[in-house]
Design a protein around this nucleic acid. Structure first.
Length: 180
DNA sequence: ACTAAGATTACCT
DNA sequence: GGTAATCTTAGTA
């Protein structure tokens, strides 16, 4: 994907990311998934966003350029990954919630410790791709980055629903999923 | 300093 | 359907 693809309205960017590939070379092992479910999060104006209450120690990557990787710790245990979108400083991002395994399935199965539900949730996806907090702030569009976002085939149909796991601004239909 | 809640998951009944 | 595991942030004292 190109930088301009990610610099527009965060909801539009989220839709455009469906079908794209997330590629990881973490640990020297190639793994990749096709993105099938995302959620859009705005900046200061979105009460459900991590950036709503301003910059903190852990959300700094959200204030970077579009295409920056934002990794956060969820419930103390899991790592979830976002792609920063919109203008620099807008602090909008797209949460990658689920993917369909492509390359390195055996590696992902090993990391997950099971051969089902490999990447069908934000925490599971982060674990399958070997994403750590160290990777926070990486440029997903740089060829030299261990984690990259690459263009893929656009899905024919997708659905828009309310976001999951949040208690504020639940009325915004900013969750987008590929429909089988 | 203390407490509650969170963009989650796995395992139990 | 309920709950434990585990850590950061925010609100209260």
């Amino acid at each position: 994907m190109d930088r301009p693809d990610l610099a527009g309205d965060v909801a539009d960017v989220a839709v455009g990311m469906l079908g794209a590939r997330l590629v990881s070379d973490v640990g020297g092992e190639r793994t990749s998934i096709s993105i099938v479910e995302v959620e859009a999060y705005g900046g200061l104006d979105d009460p459900a966003s991590h950036a709503h209450r301003g910059r903190t120690k852990t959300n700094g990557a959200m204030y970077g350029e579009a295409g920056t990787l934002y990794v956060y710790r969820s419930h103390g245990i899991y790592r979830c990954c976002n792609v920063v979108a919109g203008a620099r400083g807008e602090a909008a991002a797209v949460l990658i919630r689920a993917g369909r395994p492509l390359e390195g399935v055996d590696v992902m199965v090993r990391r997950r410790g099971r051969d089902d539900h490999v990447a069908d949730g934000p925490g599971k996806l982060g674990q399958a791709l070997g994403i750590e907090l160290d990777h926070d702030g990486l440029d997903l569009l740089s060829p030299s980055s261990p984690i990259r976002l690459e263009a893929g085939e656009r899905p024919r149909r997708f659905e828009a629903t309310p976001r999951i796991g949040i208690s504020r601004a639940v009325e915004r239909p900013w969750r987008f999923a590929v429909r089988d």
